[in-house]
Amino acid sequence: MQTGNSVIIHSSPIIQQGLKSILLSRNIGITDVMVAVPEDTVLNTWKNMLIMVDTQFSDEIKKHAKVIKKNGNRIVGIETAVFFNKLDSCSDDILYVHDNLDTINQTLMEYLSGVSDVKSDNQLSHREIEVLTMVAQGYSNKQIAGQLFISIHTVITHRKNITFKLGIKSIPGLTLYAALNNLVDFQR
């Protein structure tokens, strides 16, 4: 059973094939293999993906990091040098070409554990995710109702459902959850 999806961005056919083989062995699907970072219109369509990207594209990735990360995508840099990560903090993780299979598996586990979280997130409706995001951004019920063109009563119902589904009661808790799931920027 497939448990996630990935995109490989690397110009080396050897590395492309190696990554494909490893990802498929862990039941992670491969949506696309690219040789360059695509435009925002494509990046916007990626959701909850594992983005395995050559660190040579550090400038493009840094430029588009916000767009890539906003939909719960996880960026893993592929580095050919030893102990050097050109992507710095904009990657969630780094793999060196010399890494052994245990290290690679641990990195993939990080993504897979995130995917299972996203699955439980999916129990929230699109509207609930919108409400959760606005709660985390500090909007009041009245402001949320105004922005989403719904009644305050409906906002309260959405909030009750969010708390019930996530098991998180407090506003700081919901904000923390939203930050960890890339719904809001966590650097406050």
């Binding site: 641990q106 098991g167 998180i168 407090s170 923390l176 960890l180």
Partner: peptide, 18 residues
Amino acid sequence: ENELSDLKTIIIRHIPVQ
């Protein structure tokens, strides 16, 4: 105390592998 309970729940769900 709700905030502590939430924090605990979230940490348990997101324990990093390493």
